[in-house]
Every structure is written in C-alpha cells, then in structure tokens.
Design a protein around this nucleic acid. Structure first.
Lengths: 254, 254
DNA sequence: CGGGGATTTTTTGTCGACAATTAAAGGTTT
DNA sequence: AAACCTTTAATTGTCGACAAAAAATCCCCG
C-alpha cells in the first residue's frame, strides 16, 4: 500500500507511486488537462501498474497532476462510468475490482462485440491498416520475449482496441474499449504475473483471416482466442486463491 | 423556448417546462436523488417531452429538483456520458442533438447489439417474461390507437430496452439502453410527430420467433425492423428540412 | 495479547462566493 | 429594416472553507 511512512497518531496519506512524475503542463485547456489525467490513469491500469483495489484519493491526484479537486472529481466520475474506477460514498475511489460474476458476463459481451466489429473491420481496413496491425504484433512479440509484463499487457490489449478503431463505428469502438479495459482488470486480478494472456499466434491468425476477406474465419479464431483466455483464467483461478489474498493485502475491500 | 417572460434588459432565465413539478423528496440519500433526477430527464427525453437542443441550465435544475449544483453537475456529466445531453464549455447543457453522420453509425451499432442480445434472450427468457412482453405490446398498441405520441414513443423504445434486460448481460443491456436513447433523439429530431416509429406487428413477430426458439428468425425480423426504421428516417428527412428549422427555432445551436 | 475506545488525521461531499464567459434585450447607426 | 454596439443578467467553472465520514494509530483494560 502506497501510504506514507507511519509517523504517529492519525491516518497516513495515500499516494499511488505508479502515478508519480506527472508534470503539469503550463497553460493547458481544462479539457486537455482532463483528458491527460484520464489517459494517464487508464494507461497505468491497462499496463497493470495500477492494480485493482489501489486507492486514488482526490488530494493525491490534485498534487500529482497539479490540478484542483473539481477537475479530479470529474475525471474520477468519468473513470467510474467506464468501470475503470469504483466510487464509494465518503470513501476514496479505488481502481475497480471485478467480481467473479462479472467475468463471464464481460467475456460474453466481449465476444459479441468483437464478433460485431470484425465484419466492419474487414469492410473498412486498408492495406496500410493491416501493415500497421502487423507492426503492432511484432512489438507485442518483442515485449513478450523481454518479459516486460506491463508493456506487453498494454500491447496485447491494444491489438483488440485497434480492431475497435478499425470498425469505424465510434459507439462499438467505445464499448469495446470499455470491455477490454475491464478485462484487463480481470486479468490483473485473477492471473499471476508472467502468464501469457494473449499469445502472438492468435492475433496473427485473426489478422490473416481478415486480410484474406474471411470474416467468418476471423470471427471463429477470435472467438476461440477469447474463450481460451477466459478458460485460462478459470483454470488459474483455483491455484491463485492464496496469492489472491496476498495480492489484495488484508482487506483492500473491507 | 422556455425562457421567462421578457422583463427588460438582460438575459432571460431558461426554465424547461417539461421538467416542472419535480417535488423534492424529504430525507433522501444523495445517490437516490441523483438517480431520480437522472431518470426524470431520461424519461422525458425518451417520451420526446424534452426535445433535442433544449437547454438545461444548472440553476434551473437546482430549483426544479431542489438540490445543489454539485449534484446537478454530476447528473449532467452522467447524462453526457450516456450521450443524452451535450455539455459545452461555458455554455448550458442541452439535450443532445445527433448529427446526420451519427444516424447510420447508431443504427449499425444497434443492429449489432440487438443481434447479439437476441440469442441470450432466447436462452434466458421464461414463459412469464414472454407474457410480460406481450402485455407490453398491448399497451404499446393501445397508446398508438390513442395517438398518445409521447407515451407511445416511450413504450416503443421500452420493448427494445426490455430485450436488453432479458439478455441478463448487464454490459450489453447498458450499451443497448444508451443506443436506444440516442435513437430516440434521432427520431425526435428527424421525424415529425405523428409518424409511426415502431409498428406493432414488427415487435410481435420478433417475440413470436423468440418464443418459438427461432433465434435466426428473430434476428432477421428485428434486423429488418431496424433497417425499416432507419430507411423511414431517411425518406422523411428530405421532407422535413423546413419543419426541422421550425423545430429548432432560430438557432438552438449558434 | 487482543479488543475496544479515544485521538488524530485524511478524505469526501457540499456550499457559497467570485470571476469569466455567454446570451438576450434595448438602443444607435447605416 | 438590418447590423452593430452597449447594457444587463444568466450561467458556468473554480476555489476555499467547513462539516461529516472514514481510516489509522495509540493507549488502556481485562
């Protein structure tokens, strides 16, 4: 827990280290500030630098980002709408902690959304888009070989996010982005570091099918990939009950 | 425009009449207040009592609902997040005005979501659920026969919302709810009063197929229904350009 | 040693105030 | 009559202050 060192009586301050080093930009529009703060938090959640249950007090965010409480509250509400963060009355915001009941529903929704997105990708993606996707896959594979867990977790998700972008449907893109963020939280919570979440070949096979115009094939590969991912979580879940308690500390959710 | 009567120099207040009569409840939890205000606004948008472009000043909402600005701002942000309302820097919130580019994307997303939801409905719905759906269809038909436009607009949407509920997937349900609200705004903006938006038979046919376990049939019927609805908007669109200017007043969007 | 209570501090929710921005009305000029 | 300017008032964004709730620590007692 990133609380300050105990100094005596009273409640110690909470300052999440993962967000350190956010220099405020001079003369920035409020909307840009808001977006910068939002993105900083989302990125660290996606990269698993901010773990589920981590406290995000307003005052800490104000200091770290050099902004007032009004803006911080706005960002936190926004993050809560996207289920990245949980807000609780009279208590500090925390990085969201998906429940076990959420997991199946999230994957169900994700399969539906990705199945919906793939035909649109096939309809809209250019050769340059596919080339860019393959570059992304290479970066992903490199990160996996370097065992750079946080980088790779971000990149693995980024592939799926990119599919949402390529659908050219802003609504589906946004919903998929939300679902993927939430799946990242699930992975961060229920799977120990070091385990493969998305294997390189799976993404490559989806892209192969798309590029060949085989939408049904891409949907099948992707569906299988997502089901594998979900099943992998279920398998690991039994073994990680003890490490889960470790991960959460005594009572991140008393 | 629901501005107060002109009294001389100065800017008149804006007080949307559609929201009148919101008595504040005594001793209500903040979260309940928030939800009450949110629901009141959403309902009136869905029933087309609050038209796209209608201004919703914070002070007016504070008075009408008997709450402070903090809560109002929170609700407005939430409504903006759901695309019911648009927030603009230094200007009052307005009921959202979908652009023409939005329309196609909305319907595309809606078709995808409803297609995803229908198999889940078929998997989960009980006989009681179908009976309830049919009761809803009867209410819808009654409202249509009474030419109760606002009631019927609400009920027509309610059918689709109910499908989202019956999917038992909270994420898909929420996304569909948002899309349907936004489609209501599209209808309110682009289609004159009195035109049928959802015909009774179409909903009935979807329910028939579902109850018979014919998911593909339900998807086909529903897809056709949504495509008809969209096409209907496009047809009417050419004829309503003048009434659109009427509807918006001189410059609801200067 | 463990539990409970008191104390201290942190943190959130809310309000009022103020300044900046915006919108509408009235008056003036072309 | 239309365009422009001035005046007036509404409205939003933000901050500081305060009270309530919550969390952590310390102390005391059994």
């Amino acid at each position: 827990m990133n609380a300050t060192a105990p100094k005596g009586r009273g409640r110690p301050k909470v300052r999440p280290q993962a967000l350190a080093g956010q220099a405020p930009a001079a003369r920035e529009k409020p909307a840009d500030k808001e977006q910068r703060i939002y993105a900083a938090i989302v990125d660290r959640v996606m990269e698993q630098r901010l773990k589920p249950g981590t406290r995000l007090p307003e005052a800490a965010l104000c200091e770290l980002f050099g902004v007032g409480r009004t803006l911080v509250q706005k960002v936190l509400q926004r993050l809560a709408h996207d289920h990245i963060v949980e807000l609780r009355p009279n208590r500090s915001a925390i990085v969201a902690m998906p429940s076990r009941e959420d997991v199946g529903k999230l994957f169900e929704a994700r399969r539906a959304l990705e199945a919906a997105v793939l035909p649109l990708v096939a309809a809209h993606a250019s050769r340059a888009d596919y080339a860019s996707l393959r570059r992304q896959l290479r970066k992903e594979r490199d990160a996996m070989h370097r065992y750079a867990q946080t980088e790779w977790a971000g990149l693995a998700s980024a592939f799926h996010l990119r599919l949402g972008e390529l659908s050219r449907n802003p609504m589906l893109h946004r919903y998929l982005a939300e679902i993927i963020s939430r799946c990242c939280l699930v992975v961060a919570l229920f799977q120990p570091p070091g385990n493969a979440t998305c294997e390189h070949d799976e993404h490559g096979r989806v892209v192969d099918c798309l590029e060949a115009g085989d939408v049904a094939g891409a949907q099948r590969e992707n569906d299988r990939h997502l089901r594998d991912l979900e099943a992998h979580l279920q398998l690991v879940e039994e073994d990680t009950d003890l490490s889960l308690a470790d991960m959460l500390g005594l009572s991140a959710r008393s």
